[in-house]
Amino acid sequence: MKREIPILITLIFGVFMIIQFFIPHPSINRIAGTLQEWAIVVISFSYVLGSANILRINGEIVYRRGPDWPYKLALVLAFLLMVSTGLFGGIQEGSFANDKLFKHIYVPMASTMYASLAFFIASAAFRAFRIRTWQAAVLAISAVLVMLGRIPIAQDIWSELPDVVEWIMNVPNAVAQRGILIGAALGAIATGLKVILGIERSYLGNE
């Protein structure tokens, strides 16, 4: 009951997702479509679960006046403000939740966090990266060329530099990415089949 039913559910949902591709019969498509719709609804509940968990954990800290509780209070208030305005006023263009909270709070902070990562990856590379082998040299040269080729003075350094960088991005880089992608695809297919057939059961936990 605790392990067999989940494995059976995984098998049924997984198999129907696969056979709808190989047997595109209307009846199969209908069943697979219904199962997929159910899965979408269940996934949306998982988001609610995640939000409830955030509220529960941070709310408890605020209630107990635990460490950093003023920050947790800010988190809870921000969450409640977004949910209360978003649920009743919607999140479409023109709504308070979208135009004020999302565009003036979420977007600036998200892009600043991504932007500040430039400093962290540069300093991490500076501290950890040492050119000890020729492969490391190849990596460094490739990185420097790509960075140089994407600044306005690239043309002045060497008229062909932007085109060479474009070639590096479109050819050797694409070859490497393609190799990784093929490997990842094979891995994902194998893992997917193992999960569907009940060989891989780690998602069920230990109990």
Binding site: S44, Y47, V48, G50, S51, I54, Y71, K72, A74, L75, V76, L77, A78, F79, L80, L81, M82, V83, G86, L87, I91, A97, L101, F102, I105, Y106, M109, A110, M113
Partner: peptide, 16 residues
Amino acid sequence: HIFIGIAAGYVFCAQF
């Protein structure tokens, strides 16, 4: 913390 609160709230509303 405000970022996490707003992001979680937005995802919640989007799913809703």
